[in-house]
Amino acid sequence: MKKPIFFLSVLLVIASLGCSKSEDADVNNPNLPGPDAGIPDDPERVDYVLSTSNGSGVTGLASFIPNDDGSTTIYIDLENASQGIHPATVNFGTLESGGAIAITLNECECEISETVVTQLDNGTPVTFVELMTFDGHLNIYESPTDGTTIAQTNIGANSF
């Protein structure tokens, strides 16, 4: 229970400091300063590299972090995105085949998003282990009114 409160506290501190991001932040080294310092150095964490889509130039990293209560924190850190709001979803299927939305994530605000996941949008429970074998992909969109995909990656079973 402490991890979700900790992550929420870190997210609130980041949001209160504005949308500035340290160019030197390193998501794989939580000891460096920057908004990514809240990600624990957990060997069970799985990182997916977000690739640019539709010529947007936006890239980033999506980290799936197991929590003690069985939930999963999905932490997204975008690079080269506008400072606007960017919706994010986990979809069924591969990038190539596409698929319906499985999980609606919190929007990326100031290039950062953090969502604690316990179930799919349809109410089906999902654990960290199940997400590691999930037949899906992750999409980041231009804005709430523009559904153009700007970054994406295969996840789970599709990432191999």
Results as ranks from 00 to 15, higher is better:
residue 27 V to K: 12
residue 96 E to W: 06
residue 116 V to T: 12
residue 37 A to E: 11
residue 128 F to H: 11
residue 56 S to W: 07
residue 20 S to V: 12
residue 139 N to M: 11
residue 72 T to M: 06
residue 102 A to L: 10
residue 57 G to C: 02
residue 77 D to M: 05
residue 25 A to R: 15
residue 85 I to V: 13
residue 138 L to D: 11
residue 34 G to M: 08
residue 15 A to P: 09
residue 41 D to M: 14
residue 17 L to A: 08
residue 97 S to W: 00
residue 64 F to W: 06
residue 19 C to W: 04
residue 126 V to K: 00
residue 95 L to D: 03
residue 44 E to T: 06
residue 2 K to M: 12
residue 79 E to V: 10
residue 64 F to Y: 06
residue 160 F to N: 15
residue 24 D to M: 10
residue 78 L to H: 10
residue 2 K to R: 14
residue 31 N to D: 15
residue 97 S to G: 09
residue 147 G to K: 11
residue 109 E to R: 15
residue 68 D to M: 03
residue 85 I to Y: 05
residue 72 T to L: 09
residue 144 P to H: 08
residue 60 G to F: 01
residue 143 S to I: 09
residue 32 L to T: 13
residue 85 I to P: 00
residue 94 T to S: 15
residue 110 C to N: 08
residue 48 Y to S: 04
residue 77 D to Q: 12
residue 139 N to I: 00
residue 25 A to P: 00
residue 98 G to V: 11
residue 112 I to S: 00
residue 151 A to G: 03
residue 88 A to F: 01
residue 32 L to D: 05
residue 138 L to T: 07
residue 124 T to N: 08
residue 131 L to W: 07
residue 121 D to I: 06
residue 95 L to Q: 03
residue 57 G to W: 04
residue 10 V to L: 02
residue 153 T to H: 04
residue 64 F to I: 02
residue 4 P to T: 12
residue 19 C to H: 03
residue 100 A to V: 03
residue 106 N to H: 07
residue 121 D to V: 10
residue 17 L to R: 12
residue 14 I to N: 12
residue 146 D to Y: 01
residue 102 A to Q: 10
residue 148 T to V: 12
residue 32 L to M: 09
residue 24 D to W: 13
residue 129 V to L: 02
residue 150 I to W: 11
residue 38 G to Q: 13
residue 16 S to L: 13
residue 59 T to R: 04
residue 145 T to L: 13
residue 75 Y to M: 00
residue 57 G to M: 07
residue 47 D to Q: 12
residue 94 T to H: 06
residue 13 V to E: 08
residue 152 Q to M: 14
residue 10 V to K: 13
residue 47 D to T: 03
residue 158 N to L: 09
residue 83 Q to W: 01
residue 88 A to N: 07
residue 98 G to M: 02
residue 89 T to Y: 14
residue 82 S to N: 14
residue 127 T to W: 05
residue 69 D to A: 08
residue 89 T to F: 14
residue 88 A to H: 01
residue 52 T to V: 03
residue 77 D to V: 10
residue 131 L to C: 05
residue 42 D to V: 02
residue 143 S to L: 11
residue 75 Y to R: 06
residue 116 V to G: 03
residue 91 N to D: 13
residue 19 C to T: 11
residue 125 P to S: 04
residue 101 I to G: 05
residue 42 D to H: 00
